[in-house]
Design a protein around this nucleic acid. Structure first.
Lengths: 190, 190
DNA sequence: CGCCGAGTTGAACTGAATCAAGAAACGTGG
DNA sequence: CCACGTTTCTTGATTCAGTTCAACTCGGCG
């Protein structure tokens, strides 16, 4: 059994979680992507949410021609073109596999149908949304108050393995600083 | 009838909206606050969501002794100490009435009970959360890519009345710039 | 071997913060 | 309704973190 448990939901009652998994299980589809593959392309409506089993992916978009990373997702976390998935409109995000990656995908339609039939699961979708909302609010505070150095330090302590797995340019744009600055900051730590 | 309709929900089917209002109506409590009053105080758990009928409020917190505005809410919008309301823990936010303000409050407990009894409403909570999530994501992009001047211009066109109603210091901290810079930026426009 | 992408380093520049001092507006009590 | 104190806003001078542009290094890989 593919018992992927999203970090956002891991604090749930194991019994409920089990129930939840059983009901979602039939919706799971497994997909694989080779390093560099485009999992989702901008301009399309994104109909899936991707739960990463193995590997790492990033969502990015182009701003004035520059490639900007909006989100990384490694094992046990999820990724989708959130603008499109929520609003059912064309997405400005691309999603790219940064390593050979396997993911469970669930379609928007399947979730919708399941929720229509079993509205009690709306609750877990809500918990999930609440959690990603809190994450985003934290990121805003980061951008507002922490210097390039502090932002690097924070990710260094909260998610050190990420630094080994993604390249400097992607991380820099995610942190909202230039690659050169990130390189200099990093140099101070070794 | 106090037909407050949140901006986030105004696109719903009028029939459903009506139904929704009818079920939520009994949970509504009306409160009034005089200018300057603290609607919610940091360190406490925030048990209510506030739907502003008249007036304007802001959520703020202290960062290194400085007063930082995280959110404004005027008529037809909502405010709460979101960290606390979602996670049921002590809040770092204060909420303050910037004008004489009347609001409808709904308690967390009442929402929870209603949702337990009528899980079909989870859906609307979700829609609401999705919307505020999108708003937040937009704000991140703003912080990453727009200069002080551009951020001012954006709010000037999207929400011009706000500029008349809140003072410069509050707006500056919301935009993530110093009051002096905001003053200079504004001077260029008149 | 030589190319190519990724990372580093240097130098000049710049938007915005900070510090400091005044000016304007606001409201409260006499 | 004016006077005074407080808060809010403006303006100037200085400083600084981070950007940009450009050149260079390094490690694979065809």
């Amino acid at each position: 059994m593919s018992s992927i448990i999203l970090k956002q939901l891991e604090h749930l009652d194991p019994f409920i979680l089990d129930q939840l998994l059983q009901d979602f299980q039939p919706l799971f589809q497994h997909r694989s992507y080779t390093k560099g593959a485009l999992i989702h392309q901008e301009g399309h409506i994104c109909n899936h949410i991707f739960l990463i089993e193995k590997g790492i992916a990033r969502a990015f978009y182009y701003k004035d021609g520059k490639d900007i990373t909006a989100h990384f997702a490694a094992e046990q976390t999820s990724i989708t073109a959130i603008d499109s998935f929520i609003q059912r409109k064309q997405s400005r995000y691309n999603i790219e596999a940064l390593e050979d990656t396997t993911a469970i995908t669930i379609s928007h339609q399947d979730i919708q149908t399941l929720l229509d039939n079993k509205p009690q699961y709306e609750r877990y979708v809500r918990l999930y949304l609440e959690q990603i909302y809190i994450d985003l609010a934290e990121r805003i505070e980061d951008l507002l108050f922490h210097s390039a150095k502090e932002r690097y330090q924070k990710i260094l302590s909260s998610n050190p393995s990420l630094l080994q797995r993604v390249n400097l340019g992607h991380l820099a744009s995610y942190l909202g600083i230039s690659q050169e600055t990130l390189s200099r900051v990093r140099a101070q730590f070794s």
